[in-house]
């Protein structure tokens, strides 16, 4: 009796079972996951740059230690995700090549500049906060390696958000200049953060596959609404003002009505015209190119030692 692999795959999904690397899977599932997981990985790696920007200028030794640890975590997250993507039949070289040639996307939020120390607080608080919301449900996604990577990532992520909010708190309750710095950062990062949940539902409805494959449970707008609801209280505690002057409590839906971000700006940043797209890609490419001789030397050394047995 031969097993119908397609039926096996569908029945696993129906039972909320996990798909592992050696299982048969349809092409569209494999391709979708490679793209989604690798873009998630690219986001983590590129995300090291705007924050890494402030490591050498962190204003206290403790802040420096915390920021270094955070950026290191992000690198680690990228790493877990690259290897999860590789298990689907691609190589990190191919994935990096797609990033460096601009073929692959990464989260648009990292194309904005970190202009002041307060931006570091805003990123940890808002950007990581939004990421957490997007990521929590992926811990039970259908593809095993992805789910396991997400469990690790989510465990580490809450330290990041708390780090960011701690910076914002110190600034908001500090000197007038510090408070102004905090308000200015919030003004610039609020709407781009809302964009992280993706375009409005009417433009990008959840596909059946996204639900069946346990990649998405809630819609973009639902997540965005939940984020706004929870963040407004946090803004109020800091004594800051949300740059959206239109938000208002809506008793009927038990949530805030708020202004949509500028979707034209979103499209233009996605298409490569944001403030830092070019700089991020340049930095990524440069590090990769500069590192080529290092990797080649390591490979040559390993070969000489007969350490590995990969076929040439």
């Amino acid at each position: 009796m031969s097993i119908n692999v397609e039926e096996l795959f569908e029945s696993k999904l129906a039972k909320n079972d996990v798909i592992e690397p050696k299982d048969w899977m349809p092409d569209n599932y494999r391709k979708h996951l490679i793209r989604q997981i690798s873009q998630h990985a690219h986001s983590e790696i590129v995300g090291m740059l705007p924050e890494g920007n402030w490591i050498t200028r962190a204003p206290s030794l403790r802040a420096k230690l915390v920021l270094l640890a955070k950026v290191q975590d992000e690198g680690g997250h990228g790493l877990y995700l690259y290897t999860a993507a590789e298990s689907l039949g691609t190589s990190r070289d191919e994935l990096l090549d797609a990033l460096h040639t601009g073929k692959a996307k990464y989260s648009s939020i990292f194309n904005y500049p970190t202009l002041t120390w307060a931006d570091i607080g805003a990123i940890g608080w808002l950007v990581d906060g939004a990421a957490i919301m997007n990521q929590v449900m992926l811990q039970r996604t259908s593809y095993g390696p992805y789910a396991r990577a997400m469990v690790r990532i989510c465990k580490e992520e809450s330290f990041h958000q708390r780090q960011g909010y701690e910076v914002m708190t110190k600034l908001s309750f500090g000197t007038p200049e510090q408070k102004e710095m905090a308000q200015d950062a919030l003004n610039r990062w609020w709407f781009p953060t809302l964009m992280m949940f993706g375009p409005p539902d009417i433009e990008s409805p959840n596909s059946d596959n996204a639900i069946k494959w346990r990649i998405k449970r809630e819609s973009n707008d639902q997540l965005r609404q939940r984020f706004v609801n929870q963040t407004i209280t946090q803004i109020e505690y800091l004594g800051l003002t949300c740059p959206d002057t239109n938000f208002k409590w809506n008793e009927a839906k038990k949530g805030y009505d708020f202004s949509e971000p500028n979707w034209v700006e979103f499209k233009s940043v996605i298409n490569g015209n944001g403030p830092c797209n070019k700089e991020r890609l340049e930095a990524s490419n440069k590090a990769h190119k500069d590192g080529e001789w290092v990797r080649a030397a390591a490979m040559a050394f390993a070969d000489k030692q007969n350490e590995t047995t990969i076929a040439a």
Partner: peptide, 23 residues
């Protein structure tokens, strides 16, 4: 607990320590 890229045994061990036992 996961995997990583490395060029030789020593590097694999060190990288594994940095990546998977930081906490």
């Amino acid at each position: 607990c996961g995997n990583l890229h490395a060029f030789d045994k020593e590097m694999a061990l060190q990288n594994a320590r940095d990546l998977y036992t930081r906490r």
